[in-house]
């Protein structure tokens, strides 16, 4: 087991190194970039050349990469040029991460809370109107573009009804204390209940938007695995034994059907990260996805590199954890 983990970790480092090199070369091979983004219309060949010389962009690309690696080894990923100029790119990632985690967890909670019961009932009433409607409904949820959905939700719940805020992570006048960067948690820890409640309200609309895709997945997996379990002999046995419907549902159907569902839930992380790019942009939510969109638009290469590498790293780590979890849960895997 340990050897397996170590080997995977080594592979992961290899993947990330290769990816960093490819990214670096790719970014440097493109025209324009940072200098154009900073100078705008004011750029003249002279000011352009001066800035390129300052940044070492006039040197061969392998020299630039060597310098980059040298800096990274000292824990310095280079200053951002647009997202938060001057700040180290890694700091920006770490500063934005809690927001995205908070949002993703909440979205996942929504997806699970709705997806499992709906999936269960759809399976129990297979090929009824409820089943067909929820299958089609979950697909529509996936096909509606995020900005359209976000706009509609803002319109209805923030403007027409006035129940929820339009965008952001917290109301501006609150002056809340920050400890962890998870605003709701911070509010609870410091007993600033109004701040916690306010942050929670800010989470609802983006989380619902972000939840549409994981919801569809959880719903479909639940439906499929409940269908599978329903056909098993032990359910028939249980029924013929005269067990109550509640016991059958709790002990036999759900418990057995939940195994694939739980593993799926663990695997939603990457999809949530990706979905956060659009959702956070629409809801002005200061997370990693918002930073990524800004970095793309303004060619903030230092931030881009860190965010893409970090996203890949998170994906690889989650995969590793899932594989380890499999081994722990399933004795058949462990013996391999």
């Amino acid at each position: 087991m340990l050897r397996f983990i170590v080997r995977r970790l080594v592979q992961m480092v290899g993947v990330l190194i290769v990816l960093s090199l490819l990214l670096f070369l790719w970014l440097r091979s493109l025209p324009g970039g940072t200098v154009s983004a900073i100078l705008g219309e004011r750029a003249t060949p002279a000011s352009r050349a001066a800035m390129e010389a300052q940044f070492g962009l006039d040197q061969p690309v392998w020299v630039q990469y060597a310098k980059f690696v040298g800096r990274v080894l000292q824990g310095n990923f280079g200053p951002s040029t647009a997202v938060l100029p001057g700040r180290d790119a890694l700091d920006i990632f770490l500063q934005r991460l809690p927001a995205t985690i908070e949002l993703s967890l909440f979205a996942l909670a929504i997806a699970v809370a709705l997806g499992i019961p709906l999936g269960y009932f759809a399976a129990r009433r297979k090929e009824t109107f409820l089943d067909n409607a929820s299958v089609v409904g979950s697909l529509i949820g996936v096909a509606v573009p995020v900005f359209f959905l976000g706009f509609l939700l803002q319109r209805v719940f923030a403007i027409e009804l006035g129940w929820l805020p339009v965008s952001g992570r917290q109301s501006t006048g609150l002056d809340a204390t920050r400890i962890t960067g998870f605003f709701v948690l911070d509010g609870i820890l410091t007993r600033e209940w109004d701040a916690a409640w306010d942050s929670f309200k800010h989470l609802i609309l983006p989380a619902v938007t972000l939840a549409t895709i994981p919801f569809a997945v959880v719903f479909r997996i639940t439906r499929a695995s409940v269908l599978e379990v329903l056909d098993e002999d032990y359910i028939r046995t249980a029924e013929s034994k005269g067990l109550t419907a509640r016991i059958i549902r709790g002990r036999h159907i759900l418990r057995n059907a939940m195994l694939p569902v739980t593993t799926t839930i663990g695997l939603q992380v990457g999809a949530l990260l990706a979905g956060a790019v659009l959702t956070e942009t629409v809801f002005g939510f200061a997370g990693v996805g918002d930073a990524l969109a800004t970095a793309f638009r303004l060619r903030d290469y230092a931030v881009l590199q860190v965010l893409i590498l970090a996203a890949a790293g998170i994906y690889v780590i989650v995969n590793l954890l899932v594989d380890i979890m499999y081994a722990v849960i399933d004795p058949r895997v462990r013996t391999r």
Partner: peptide, 13 residues
């Protein structure tokens, strides 16, 4: 971009 409804799980993929 909505990842595919079929395989939004990057690794369950």
């Amino acid at each position: 971009m909505n990842p595919s409804p079929m395989d939004p799980r990057p690794s369950a993929k």
